[in-house]
Simulated assay, not measured.
Amino acid sequence: MKAQSQLNMKKKFNRSSNKKWFHELSAFKIIATLLLILSALFFVFPFYWIITGAFKAQVVAITIPPEWFPLKPILDNWVTLFSNPVWRWTFNSFFIASSEMIAVCFVSATAGFVLAKKVFPGRKLIFIVLIAAMALPKQVILVPLFTMLADFGWVDTYKGLIIPAIGWPFGVFLMKQFSQTIPNELLEAAKIDGCGEIRTFWHIVIPMLKPALGALAIFTFMLSWNDYFSQLVITRSTEMMTLPLGIATMQGEHKTDYGVMMAGAALASVPMIVIFTLFQKSFTQGITMGSVK
C-alpha cells in the first residue's frame, strides 16, 4: 500500500509538472508570436508610409499630426514623376543590376570553386588578399577607381558602372565556402566517367551551388540597385542616370516635394521585391545550409 501510494503521488507530480511546463511553453509561444508581429509591423510600416505618401498632396504629406491614410488620394505625384525620363532611369538600373548579378554569380562561382578544390602555388595568398579586400570600404578605392575609368574612357558608360563590380570579394568568399562542401569523391567519379573540367563544373558543381547562387544573386542585385554613391561619381549625363540617382535629382535646393519622392521610392522598390520573391527559396536554403555547415 505504501509503495502504491508513493507511485500515485509520483504520477500526480509528473502530471502537474507536465501541465505547468505546457502552460509555460504556451505563454512563451504567445509572447514570441506577439514580438514577431510587432517586429513585422515595425519593418513594414515604412513601406506602407511610402505607398500612402505617394498618393498625398504636399500639404497633406507634411501635416502634423500625420494623415495615416490618404482621405483624398491624388495622382499628381505620379504624373510629375513620369514627366521625367523615369523609364530610361529604370532601364539603366535594371540593366546594370542584372548584368552585375549574372557576372558576379558566374565569376564568383568559378573563382570560389578553384580556390576551394584546386591546388596551385599562391592559393592561400590569394585567399588572404581576398579577405583583406573585403575589409576595405568602397569609398577608399573610389578615387583610384575613377582615375582608372577616366584613363580607359569608361566614365558615364555602362562598362564603367558594371565591370568594376564583377570581382566582388564577398561573392568569391561565399562561393569558396560552399564549394568546400562538395564531396571530392563526386568530382573524382565525374572525372572517371569522362567529364572534363567545364562539363563537371556546369553539370555537377553549379547545381550543387544553386542555393548559394540564389543568395548571392539577391545580395548583388540589391547592392547594385541601391549603389547611389558610385553611380553618382561615375555618371555624368541624364540619360545614364539610374533610378535612385534620377529620383534624387528631383529634390529641389530649397523645397522638397515629398509626394513625388515617395512615388519614386515606391517605384524603385518594385524590382527588388520581385527579385527577392523569385530567389526567396534559394536565398533561404543558402542561409540555412551555411548555418548547418
Rank of each mutant, 00 (worst) to 15 (best):
P137G: 04
L174S: 06
M148C: 11
T288C: 03
D227M: 12
L125E: 08
E100V: 14
I206W: 06
G286Y: 06
P211V: 01
I234L: 13
V140Y: 05
L174G: 02
L223W: 15
W21T: 03
E253M: 13
H254C: 01
P211D: 03
T90P: 02
F82W: 13
D151F: 07
S282Y: 14
T157A: 04
L216D: 00
A3H: 00
P244M: 06
T200E: 15
I287K: 04
A266R: 03
V59C: 00
M241K: 13
W21H: 12
A27F: 08
K10C: 00
P169K: 10
S98Q: 03
N92L: 13
I182Y: 02
I287Y: 07
A61I: 08
Y258R: 02
P137Q: 12
I64K: 05
L35D: 01
T110P: 01
W78G: 01
F42M: 15
L223N: 15
I198F: 15
Q280N: 14
S108T: 01
P65D: 04
I126P: 03
Q58G: 02
A265Q: 14
K124W: 14
T256M: 14
W49R: 15
P121R: 09
V292M: 11
K293N: 09
E197V: 07
M250V: 03
I166F: 10
S108K: 00
Q280K: 09
M289Y: 08
H254A: 12
L35P: 00
T242L: 09
A268D: 13
F178K: 03
A32V: 04
Q285L: 12
F45H: 11
T200L: 04
F173K: 07
A212H: 11
E197H: 05
L41N: 01
E197F: 12
A217F: 03
K2V: 00
A54H: 04
F283H: 05
T181R: 06
I192N: 02
M1E: 02
T33Q: 09
V233E: 04
M9F: 10
F94Y: 07
R15Q: 14
V119Q: 15
A212C: 09
P144I: 08
L136K: 08
A263E: 08
I273P: 05
K20M: 10
S237M: 06
V114E: 10
T288I: 12
L25S: 05
I50G: 02
V260G: 09
